[in-house]
Design a protein around this nucleic acid. Structure first.
Lengths: 230, 230
DNA sequence: CCCATTTTTAATCATTTGATTAAAAAACTT
DNA sequence: AAGTTTTTTAATCAAATGATTAAAAATGGG
């Protein structure tokens, strides 16, 4: 059991412990293929260890998965909740920070969104509750600012649309990447570049969306059909 | 086998044949939980039939899944490719039609996007190729119009960003629905209403995005911090 | 009503898969 | 070096799962 005489426990801190190797293999496969499609034997093979070691270090496949899921969620949340602490930031600054954080994080771990959407679908509410709790501060800051701004007439956009737009424009490209890249016909490098461009484009768009049709835009003459180009 | 004397084959066309019931149960479970997480026994149970019947009608779990996947893709593509045939439509009209088609379809079958993203991830290229082929006409029309418009200086937006925005704003809310709904705290009815609103909002936003920063917008004075409200 | 065909069922198989066990190997302490 | 603890391995178990089979039931035609 885990309750022996824990007197001698040096823990030499090797450069890559087997426990870590298992976790990394598990993270890779679970994140990529999901819980059901991942076999413990695949994890063992990718980690280069004996199958029994998986159960030795992490009680069961489920426990291991729960661990990975928790860590993935933390990575995800950490990537986007850094920005809320500064009280001094303006609404616009906050938006810029959030978009950059999203895109930077997802450039590092592009599989995360699909993983989270999949594991959130079953809606065990344990997860979504946690997610919601963690996200609450962010929501408060942004929403309050938006709601006030709406009330004062400076903007006019439901929080729902605002969040859907913000996250949609930042996250969706990573979700749809396999299809998008095929349809458009671009390389990985080009995709990365486009996402970098988006770090400045999305905030601009988002801000433009804050003041919908009726506020600024006349019924239809948005772009004159043939204004003198160049 | 399937090669008997097919002399007598009346096919009375019952109101709900077992074959159909199996397929419906399979569609439901496969679409909701994916291939690996779905057990043939679950399908049998939900269809209210003996397990062996699944293999009697559809050779194997894999064959049945392939069928469902194919049909799902067709439903998806059909839902968004109706609009490309009209040569007379303007760019703006096309956008409006596409957004409405997307949102209407996904209101009916909200599970489709996640299913497709999941099954596209493995990238067996068989699927993505088919998807790409089917999507090609749509791409041609829209992209050509956009590219021309870009060249003539009326707009200034990479096709990648355009598609990512269009699809992202239309599809993402359905993908993120479980999380979004929790974060914002809205009911199912409210969500549906928001998506209905989006049928008019998204096209407006998309059109506004066609002329990015440098074209119309001065460096920063987008919204004066305290313009006289109301 | 009898026969041929189709459909359905219960029982069973073979493989996969998560997990355990007992023993061996390695690491560490004294 | 001996003893103790930790780590690793090979073998095996038990349950789950996709699939098959042989027989029974239902269906339809003459």
């Amino acid at each position: 059991m885990a309750k022996t005489t824990r007197s001698t426990k040096p823990k030499p801190a090797k450069e890559s412990t087997t426990e870590e190797r298992i976790k990394e293999a598990a993270r890779h496969l679970f994140t990529q293929k999901g819980f059901a499609a991942t076999r413990t034997r695949d994890i063992a093979e990718e980690a280069g260890i004996n199958l029994a070691l998986l159960n030795y270090y992490f009680r069961s496949k489920q426990k291991l998965f729960d661990l990975i899921m928790l860590e993935n969620f933390q990575v995800f949340l950490k990537g986007i909740t850094i920005n809320l602490s500064d009280e001094t930031m303006t609404f616009d600054q906050r938006i810029e920070k959030i978009v950059i954080a999203y895109i930077d994080m997802l450039t590092r771990v592009p599989d995360l969104p699909l993983f989270i959407l999949n594991e959130t679908r079953g809606n065990p509410s344990k997860i979504t509750t946690r997610l919601n709790t963690q996200l609450a501060p962010m929501r408060r800051h942004l929403f309050d600012q938006l709601i006030i701004s709406n009330k004062e007439g400076r903007t006019n956009l439901e929080p729902f649309h605002f969040v859907a737009n913000l996250v949609g424009l930042s996250v969706f490209p990573f979700l749809g990447r396999p299809i998008l890249q095929r349809v458009i016909g671009i390389t990985d490098t080009q995709f990365d570049q486009f996402m970098q461009d988006r770090k400045t484009l999305v905030p601009i768009w988002i801000k433009a969306m804050l003041t919908p049709p009726n506020t600024l835009t006349p019924p239809n003459p948005r772009i004159p059909p043939h204004s003198t180009p160049k």
